[in-house]
Computed example of a mutant assay.
Amino acid sequence: MIFFLAGTSDARELAVTLQQDGYSVIASVVTENAVNELKQVGVPAFAGRMDTEAMQAFIGEKEAAAVVDASHPFAEEASKNAMAAASQAGIPYVRFERKEQDFQESSLITYVSTYEEAADRAAKTKGTVMLTTGSKTLAIFTERLLPIEDIRLVCRMLPRKDNMEKCEQLGLPQKNIVAIQGPFTKKFDQALYEQYDVACMVTKASGQRGSVDQKIEAAKELGIETIVIERPSIDYSNRCSSFEEVRDMLRKLKIKRGHGDGF
């Protein structure tokens, strides 16, 4: 059985691909919505954040033969926990991560390494700052930007109850919340930027499947400054950027196919 960490739409497709190859897969995700999406395509899944010890216990209970980590490129803690758990359990760890995109150099695009750097850079802007980095690090931006009179902070995020509650707790006005789920087209992004009169957009280098290219191109065409947060620097083992690389790696590692005991 493969213990599979899923955090993106392409991760879901990879899990299905591995099942079609004959591997037994059980996926760990963060939300119940993600569980339902995986179950709809026939992949057993459960929700909840797990630390290293919890992962190791699960690996032992299910007698997992390998860990395939297809969590979000910015789910740094989950990846580190998965690597440690696999190492402690003595089983292979395989990382799948969508390729980063290279954008043409532009005076409108600024790359930073941390959320704090992004917030400090955005604080130099006058007008509307649109945040498209989710709710996990929202406090970093609200603490730095909400007190500035010349800045209106607008946040685009998934329409989840916990996200709305977090916005309320952090003092983000309801009128400044765009609760919506993508993917989006470039035209949609441009319409949104124009609707809110955006002067600066903040995003993460999540890859094409994260629609980063659409967001950035839409902003560039409108002359909007874009701040891109680069991916965490992690020394992954058995790193793959395509489904075929993952399949080849599992064959190389001689991971057996067959059905596990599920839940």
Rank of each mutant, 00 (worst) to 15 (best):
V68T: 14
A70V: 07
A70D: 11
A70Y: 13
S71G: 15
H72V: 05
H72K: 04
H72P: 00
P73E: 09
P73R: 06
P73G: 04
F74H: 02
F74C: 01
F74M: 01
F74N: 00
A75L: 01
E76F: 04
E76K: 05
K80G: 01
K80N: 14
N81G: 01
A82Q: 10
A82C: 12
A82N: 13
M83G: 10
M83T: 07
A85R: 09
S87Q: 14
G90T: 06
I91M: 11
I91V: 13
P92A: 09
Y93P: 12
V94D: 13
R95L: 13
R95K: 15
R98N: 11
K99I: 08
K99P: 14
D102S: 13
F103K: 12
E105V: 10
E105H: 13
S106A: 09
I109M: 06
T110W: 01
Y111A: 00
Y111F: 14
Y111W: 10
S113K: 12
S113G: 02
E116M: 02
A118L: 00
A118P: 03
D120A: 10
R121E: 15
K124H: 14
T125Q: 13
K126R: 15
K126F: 11
G127M: 05
G127F: 11
G127N: 10
G127V: 08
G127Y: 10
T128F: 11
V129P: 07
V129W: 05
V129C: 07
L131F: 13
L131T: 06
T132C: 05
S135A: 07
K136G: 01
K136N: 09
T137S: 08
T137M: 07
T137Q: 11
L138E: 07
F141E: 06
E143G: 04
L146Y: 03
I148N: 04
I148E: 05
E149S: 12
D150H: 13
D150C: 04
I151A: 02
I151T: 04
R152K: 11
L153C: 00
V154I: 11
C155E: 01
C155M: 02
R156N: 04
M157N: 06
L158I: 12
P159R: 01
P159D: 08
R160N: 07
K161W: 09
E165A: 14
E165T: 10
C167W: 11
C167N: 12
C167Q: 08
Q169T: 06
Q169G: 00
Q169C: 00
L170I: 05
G171K: 04
G171L: 09
L172S: 06
L172E: 10
L172H: 07
P173M: 14
Q174G: 02
Q174Y: 10
K175E: 15
N176G: 05
I177V: 15
V178R: 08
V178F: 12
V178I: 15
A179M: 12
I180D: 01
Q181D: 10
P183D: 15
P183V: 14
P183Y: 15
F184P: 02
F184G: 03
F184H: 09
K186G: 04
K186W: 13
F188A: 12
F188N: 01
F188G: 01
F188T: 09
D189I: 07
D189V: 03
